[in-house]
Simulated scan of single mutants.
Amino acid sequence: MMALRGVAFLCALLMLAGCRREEAGVRFFPEGQPKSLGEWHVLKVDGGRLSLNDGVVPYDLNTPLFSDYAHKLRTIWIPKGKAARYDAQRSFDFPVGTIISKTFYYPLPGDGKWDGTSVARTSTGNDLQGGSLDLSRVRLIETRLLVRREAGWDAMPYVWNEAQTEAVLKRAGALLSLELVAADGSREAANYQVPDQNQCASCHATDNKTRALHPIGLKARHINRDFAYSGGSENQLAHLSRVGYLVGAPAAEQAPRNADWKDAAHAKLEDRARAYLDVNCGHCHSQTGPAITSGMWLDAAVSDRLKLGFCKQPVAAGKGTGNRLFDIAPGHADASVLVFRMDSDDPSVMMPELGRSVVHREGVQLVSDWIDAQKGTCDF
């Protein structure tokens, strides 16, 4: 009898353990707005590290969107038995239940101790080691979720707490005072803005007619690159296909691919500048985006130089142009509205209008070099 009771007790323990494992898996909410990021079980903090739950796949972009020098951990999770459908130009067609996350964080400067404001100002990069982030070396700021529900995509911003143990939903957004510390010790104040839910549409509503939200980064040209997964390096399109998250994708060499904006050794200046403008500006400045009325389209598909802004008079006037006559004046970056607005941190002037509070100096230099290298003249 005692032996039977022991077996029964062991079975009960095994069943309970199985339930706990199931509860720890990623959880999709078809409606509502969970108050904490942990309820989704996409990311988990354990042992001083931020790691990905089972089935959550990290990815990166050839050229990323600039956000006050923040680094980003991007992930995707798709329910078992479902997959996204490949598209050569637009965002992939994702099934209901898809969860895309983007965690914004900064490496810590100097001795690695968090003093409440200071973070390192470095180029964005992949800081994953063994599939996780070492929280003694980075400061988590926010995690944004883009969730595919029956009615479409919903966006939710979660802000990490001081203890770095949980992120809480902030529907109204948040404003964080940071100090960016460069390698040479110079410091720059940054008023880091976590967008409110309505502001998410400023970038993700890429069709000005429907105003429906869509992913931006998960396009073939942005993610057609290798990634250092915990099991080894592999092309991201091939990896997503292999794990069953993507169908219809061609071989990597047959898919479009944007340049790495920093890779001057292997990519042309033209390709690097266009990739930078595509990911930072093209979702808005396109023939369907919110900035369609500007007549300046900066997405990768545009080849018409007038539509790109060459010798095109700006729609804006006065302060927004800095008294420049053309959006892009070939050979004259300092006379181009595009560079003027990129090089400003004045909210009434700067572009993009949201997502940054400081100037991306390296990005401005890249676009300036590209414009200065252009041939042709306008009627000054």
Rank of each mutant, 00 (worst) to 15 (best):
P58N: 14
Y86H: 09
L65G: 00
M342E: 10
T288V: 14
T143I: 03
N235L: 06
M1H: 08
T206M: 01
V147N: 03
G152N: 11
I328K: 01
P34W: 01
I76M: 11
A373V: 10
V339L: 02
G173A: 04
A183C: 04
Q313A: 12
G152S: 11
W40K: 02
M351C: 09
D60N: 04
K113Y: 05
V147H: 06
A220Q: 07
R148N: 12
D372K: 10
A12Q: 05
L135V: 12
P30H: 04
A252E: 15
A265Q: 15
S348F: 06
R225F: 04
Q236H: 03
H239C: 04
V358A: 08
Q365F: 02
Q199F: 02
G217Q: 00
L133G: 04
F104A: 14
S348D: 15
V243A: 05
A373I: 12
P250R: 05
V364H: 04
I141G: 08
D184R: 04
G18K: 00
L140W: 08
M342R: 00
W160T: 13
Q365R: 13
Q236A: 00
K209G: 10
L135D: 11
M2R: 07
G232T: 14
T98L: 06
G282T: 13
S233V: 15
A151H: 13
C11K: 03
L135W: 09
V358K: 10
D207E: 14
I292G: 00
M2L: 13
P352F: 03
I216V: 15
L298E: 10
G38F: 01
G25E: 15
L338I: 14
G309L: 11
D60G: 10
D87F: 03
D207A: 09
Q193W: 05
D304L: 03
D46K: 12
C378K: 07
L16T: 14
C11H: 02
K72V: 13
P157G: 05
A252M: 09
Y106C: 00
S336P: 03
A88K: 11
G152K: 10
P250H: 03
R137C: 10
D260C: 05
C284N: 07
R257C: 08
G376W: 10
D379R: 11
A151M: 12
C281I: 12
G295S: 07
L240D: 12
G376C: 07
S101Y: 04
R272K: 07
Q33L: 02
L277C: 01
V364L: 06
V358R: 10
G363Y: 08
R144T: 06
K375Q: 15
M1G: 14
D54L: 07
V119R: 01
A267W: 13
G355Q: 06
M1T: 08
G6F: 05
L298P: 14
H266V: 07
R85L: 07
L61W: 00
I223Q: 00
D271S: 11
A151Q: 15
L240Q: 09
Y229W: 06
L13E: 08
V367F: 05
D327Q: 12
G112D: 13
E253W: 03
A249P: 05
A167W: 02
N126T: 13
R49S: 09
S101R: 02
Y245R: 02
A251M: 04
G363A: 08
P107T: 05
L354T: 14
D87C: 06
A335I: 01
D260S: 05
H222C: 02
A17V: 13
V302S: 00
G289H: 01
I223L: 11
R242K: 12
E179S: 13
E23A: 13
V243G: 06
I78G: 13
L133D: 10
